[in-house]
Amino acid sequence: MSVSPSEKPKLGVSACLMGVEVRYNGGHKQSDLCTGALREYFDFVPACPEVAIGLGIPRETIRLVGDPERPQAVGNVHPELNVTRQLAEYGEHMAGEMTDISGYIFMQKSPSCGLERVKVYRDNGAPFDGGGRGIYAQAFCERQPDLPVEEDGRLNDPALRENFITRVYAYAAWQRLLRDGLSRRALTEFHSRYKYQLMACDVTQYKALGKMLGSMGRSDPEEVGPQYFSLLMNALKKCATRGSHTNVLQHLCGYLKQTLSAGDKQELQGLINQYHQGIVPLIVPLTLLKHHFRHHPDPYVALQVYMQPHPEPLSLRNAI
């Protein structure tokens, strides 16, 4: 998958993660992943909601209090400072403005930007178990529920990082499809390309979505498409396991059963078994599969997103 500069997907990002000094203390939380490995493949759109609503730099810290489902964002020192409405309105505004992004990386634990486990305090000062979600992040995600989102800290996990980037490229592909025009044929072809990626993440939804499009008939794709895509993105949130990846690898081997020698088949099966046992990463059997498909091309496999769901130099499958 080659990505030209004009085709780079856009990612929303908390500005502090890009090294911008917008934190309450005038500092930043620069992410090496965002400013390093990902910079070549994505255009970042930074935002800091707390600065945007006028809190200034430096500023009094805020915290979440009250109902964890719908908390209030108030000043840590001066609780009469309540910026809940401003943060929520800015989240709604930015969700309406940033319609061309394909994903968003939020600052973890932030009362404005955290996606989960943000501390929410009771009246007596004790935090609730489980926590809540930042005010800005909550409002933004409610407006764009299908958008791939993740926290910077969770992206240190190789499986979560690979899953997130896979979803970002799926979202970007859908955006291109919508720009080109949604038709029944285009929708069917899109699903066909995601067959094995979907099978790796959620085999139940893979079957359900196939049936959904199979029974589409003469339905308006403008109505079916958004429903299909929401279900697809929800399914892709599930991280593929060694077992589900192994299942897909075995399916792909089926396209080579008439062309490989007994020795080549044995070698390939050996590497797939080693991957399943956790001895080698996914990239090892997958690289051998790609080698065989270069010598024995299959047009259907060549279209499969699973074979290369993101740029190879990112090496996202080297650690899963």
Rank of each mutant, 00 (worst) to 15 (best):
M1D: 10
S4V: 10
P5C: 02
S6F: 04
K8E: 02
K8Q: 11
P9M: 09
P9F: 06
K10A: 13
L11D: 02
V13L: 13
G19W: 06
V22E: 01
R23W: 09
N25V: 08
G26F: 09
H28N: 14
K29H: 10
L33I: 11
L33S: 10
T35H: 02
T35L: 05
R39Q: 13
Y41H: 14
Y41R: 08
F44W: 03
F44H: 06
C48Q: 06
C48E: 03
P49I: 00
P49H: 04
G56R: 09
R63A: 01
R63N: 07
G66L: 07
R70A: 13
G75R: 08
N76F: 04
P79Q: 05
V83M: 07
V83H: 06
E89M: 11
E89W: 06
E89G: 08
Y90D: 07
E92F: 07
G96N: 11
E97R: 14
E97Y: 11
E97F: 10
I101Q: 02
S102Y: 04
F106P: 01
M107S: 07
Q108D: 14
C113S: 09
V120M: 01
Y121M: 02
A126D: 08
A126N: 07
P127D: 09
P127T: 07
P127L: 05
D129G: 07
D129L: 11
D129N: 08
G130D: 06
G134K: 01
G134H: 04
G134A: 02
Q138L: 05
F140M: 00
E142D: 12
Q144Y: 01
V149I: 13
E151N: 08
R154F: 02
R167T: 08
Y171M: 14
A172T: 05
A173R: 15
W174R: 12
L178G: 00
L178N: 05
D180R: 15
D180E: 15
A186I: 00
A186Q: 04
L187I: 07
E189H: 09
H191Q: 10
S192R: 15
Q197E: 15
Q205L: 07
A208H: 09
G214M: 09
G214V: 07
S215A: 13
M216D: 02
S219D: 14
D220N: 15
P221H: 04
P221T: 05
E222I: 03
F229L: 13
M233C: 11
L236I: 04
C239V: 13
R242P: 00
N247V: 00
N247A: 13
V248D: 05
Q250D: 09
Q250Y: 12
H251V: 12
H251S: 11
A262M: 12
Q274W: 00
G278D: 11
G278K: 08
I279N: 08
L282C: 03
L286K: 11
L289Y: 07
L289A: 07
L289Q: 03
H292L: 01
H292S: 01
D298N: 15
D298I: 05
Y300V: 14
Y300A: 12
L303Y: 00
Y306C: 04
M307I: 15
P311K: 03
E312C: 01
L314T: 10
N318T: 06
A319R: 13
I320R: 12
